[in-house]
Design a protein around this nucleic acid. Structure first.
Lengths: 128, 128
DNA sequence: GCTTGACATAGTGTTAACTACAGATGTTAG
DNA sequence: CTAACATCTGTAGTTAACACTATGTCAAGC
């Protein structure tokens, strides 16, 4: 699978795919004898994982660290677990922040809709 | 309330508070005759809203736009609602991404914990 | 009244995560 | 074979959201 195909498959630019590889967020991709990238299924799985993590906002740096650990064999399993636990904490906090902001948005949207119907904009809790 | 107090109250740096004001993310803050910021309760509510939105990852640009609309009177209520609806969509997408990544993390953490007990690392779905 | 520390503005620096070339090399259709 | 196009490496540029620095003013304690 060449880079054009993978780019379309995961909706990531070719530049981004090369960037992920260069910084070590995914392992080195297979090459044809002439040096053209030829992604294996395994390569694709890493790309997909990277995209998933990034979409949730996990730093590139963290994926680089995770990849390093996986490449150092099974004795790094506890360290990998630790790393993932930390990131889970981050994500749970992130989720809470998103949910609380969604509450705020819903409240405001509702007030605005009432205002559009009745002509009266009333904040009945601490709001601006 | 001076900037030091507000900074502590919301755990935002003084630089950040000044930055938010400068770019128009919150309205201009009251000043003493000599030019020192003197935050009112209303000012604080804007700071708190700004912090909430930013914590969920909504762009500064969006808050600037929202503030502008609120300052143009009640005829912008439909536009404000539109803006908030868009951001709600963003946040729902963000929440979905976070949840799906949390699933991935939980799956991996579990495998690693099993591996640490049994010595066997088994991926039973498409994973790296 | 003088030092000291908080606050002011203005401008520059930083960091993360891409993104956009440029110039060279490889590939393919006719 | 050659034109046209894809991919390569390496470097430089961009953007968002602050953080830092320099320099100047003001207010409070002694």
């Amino acid at each position: 699978m060449n880079i054009a195909v993978v780019s379309k498959k995961f909706d990531l630019s070719q530049d981004t795919l090369r960037y992920y590889e260069r910084v070590g967020m995914i392992p080195p991709v297979n090459r044809t004898p002439s040096g053209i990238r030829d992604y294996t299924e395994e390569n694709c799985k890493w790309v997909e994982l990277a995209k998933c993590m990034r979409s949730a906002g996990l730093p590139v740096e963290v994926m680089i660290e995770y990849l390093k650990l996986t490449q150092q064999g099974e004795e790094t399993i506890p360290a990998r677990r630790e790393l993932l636990l930390e990131q889970r904490e981050q994500l749970l906090a992130q989720k809470a922040a998103v949910e609380s902001t969604l509450d705020r948005l819903n409240f405001k949207i509702e007030r605005y809709e009432i205002a559009m119907e009745t002509g009266v904009l009333s904040w009945d809790r601490e709001e601006v």
